[in-house]
Design a protein around this nucleic acid. Structure first.
Lengths: 221, 221
DNA sequence: GCCGCGAGGATTCTATGGAAAGTAGGCTGT
DNA sequence: ACAGCCTACTTTCCATAGAATCCTCGCGGC
């Protein structure tokens, strides 16, 4: 529970991760006061955090009843990465038309550092650089609501969680090259396809990881 | 400001609509106490409502600063309907494989009533039946997070707003037939394509409407 | 004239208290 | 014995107040 600047967001992150890892009983109610006591805060920020999570689709709010945990099923993971692939592909396509050579060179440099960090096994640095690469592409492609939507499809899995996923670093090292090549060539459709492929790839890896860890509790599978 | 069962949701709807219509100054800050006084409620539910809207991407929360309105640009409308078309298409494809003949017959009946209501100019009834048709298809296709995501891409425009959009009723009368035919035939890809086409069609109509009404304030166009 | 700085005011944010609603368990009447 | 109601407890939900933070504006120094 790393105290962010705001208690609401801090609590939201905590609960998000707990749901992701499977610590919370699927389909069970979330009691605000219990959470508040457990985290050492008041009920108000807890309530606000649960509102945020409700907006993200992680929990369901039933008026005057409480907040119910919506367990993550294998189908959900596939679905979310499908949307993520669509949106990220679209943004990459736009970035291909907008990024100049300097920007692409900057991406190449970041990617080189990423490869280096992966070779040294510096997980945290890999994660940071990966985030930087993606953010640069996405911010180039648009600053409006499409990126907000993308953030949401991404938010349900904590950033630092990827480090535990088997094969994730290799995928980031390998897949990014195709994307950068397409961006350098200014080829919209290739960029779209490469990015979509990359995202789907990550989705498959995450799905396999979750199955192995048994994080799917009451999933349909 | 129709009092829903919960003040948070009630306030959220109010602000959502105000943003949509353009009553709120784009890029301006939203003061919680002003809103609270205006709506006759306390600051707490207002804050929660703004948290929800932040999750939907309608406003941006800057910690310790406040909530900033993100104006809707023409590009945003196009983007959101693009995602909506993708998701709704996917759900329609699944529905095609899952709905039996009875269910399709029920949809046909609802659609007939919709056509009838449109011919009589009963706007509210058209809107209700349209919602019913779409919800039936979407709920058949999945109850997980994909539908939650769809809800979100839909939520930024109030349901009853469509009645004001020129040509919307005609589109609902015409486009739905293609979708229902595909569902009846159990043809996944046709259903996907027809639904996606329908959603894009609505998006074009809404965009034209907003341009005409000058609802785009500081849009890029 | 311009930059840094500090006091005042405004606003967000969290905690606490009380009211409303929902739930569970036992009791009574048939 | 079973169904329906009633009471007590739990929990959500909203309002209010105080603490922390940020912006604004004016003053002094360079």
């Amino acid at each position: 529970m790393p105290d962010g600047r705001q208690l609401s967001e801090s609590v939201a992150s905590h609960v998000r991760e707990a749901i992701m890892v499977g610590d919370l009983p699927g389909h069970g109610y979330l009691r605000t006061e219990h959470l508040a006591a457990e985290l050492g805060v008041s009920a108000t920020p807890v309530r606000e955090a649960l509102m945020i999570l409700q907006g993200e689709g992680a929990i369901r709010w039933e008026p005057r009843r409480g907040y119910r945990v919506l367990p993550l099923t294998p189908g959900d993971v596939e679905d979310l990465f499908g949307v993520q692939a669509y949106v990220a592909g679209e943004l990459a396509a736009r970035a291909a038309a907008l990024l100049d050579q300097d920007a692409v060179a900057g991406l190449r440099a970041a990617q080189e550092q990423l490869v280096d960090a992966a070779a040294r096994g510096e997980a945290e640095r890999v994660e940071r650089l990966n985030h930087e690469v993606h953010r640069t592409i996405n911010r180039a492609g648009g600053t409006g609501r499409l990126t907000a939507l993308l953030r949401q499809t991404v938010s349900y899995v904590p950033r630092h969680y990827y480090a535990r996923v088997q094969g994730w670093e290799r995928a980031s090292v390998h897949d990014h090259d195709d994307v950068l090549d397409a961006l350098a060539a200014g080829d919209r459709e290739s960029a779209r396809a490469a990015m979509a492929r990359h995202v789907r790839h990550i989705g498959v890896l995450l799905d396999a990881h979750l199955r192995e860890r048994g994080a799917y509790r009451r999933g349909s599978l």
